[in-house]
Amino acid sequence: MSNTKVSMDPKYIIKLTVTLFLTCVVVAGLLGGVNAITADKIAASNWQKTVEAMSAVVADPASTNFSDAMELTDAMTAAATAAGGTLDSVYEAQVNGQAVGYAVKVVSSGSQGNIEMMVGVDTDGTVTGVSIVKNSETAGIGSKVMANEPLATGVGVLDQFVGKSAADGTLTVGANVDAITGATVSSRGVTAGVNAALAAAGAIG
């Protein structure tokens, strides 16, 4: 590196600063305009996606409404982390204004990356459904788990969680959860996610 001093006219520096500042102001103003037009639509379409994912995991999607995202307490986050997943958000499921359960969005780690999933848990702490929001599991192996393919018993690998609750203890592949052959890691990832969701739901209230 050379140590030669850069000597600049202060006026020139002010000119550079002002030019850059004005450009930023103009661009920011334009962006603000675009944002004003699109913000509502974006929020609506995101909410619709979330509702679709949540409807898939509650017992009676037609008559269920969902609250806005609940505030996550430290207890919930810590419980989910202890059970092997990361808590993303929790929504309350309501029928006729009465809370019937929660839709818990958790992230757990699969074989190729994170698995984002929505787990429905009713107020008794029983799983009402599991659906995968986002995953990058290996096509042909882990993807079987993500696609809810049937196990040897004929039950879908995600559907087997329905009815399980915290009372069953920690869910473990091989003990009280069946895995798809060859896709043990992905199955474990989903199981960890369900455990985390149950733990988080248990820590509510």
């Binding site: 962006l31 944002n35 699109t38 639509k41 974006i42």
Partner: peptide, 9 residues
């Protein structure tokens, strides 16, 4: 950013 917002919407 404009294109991103418009696409999202």
């Amino acid at each position: 950013t404009m294109v991103d917002l418009l696409l999202q919407a």
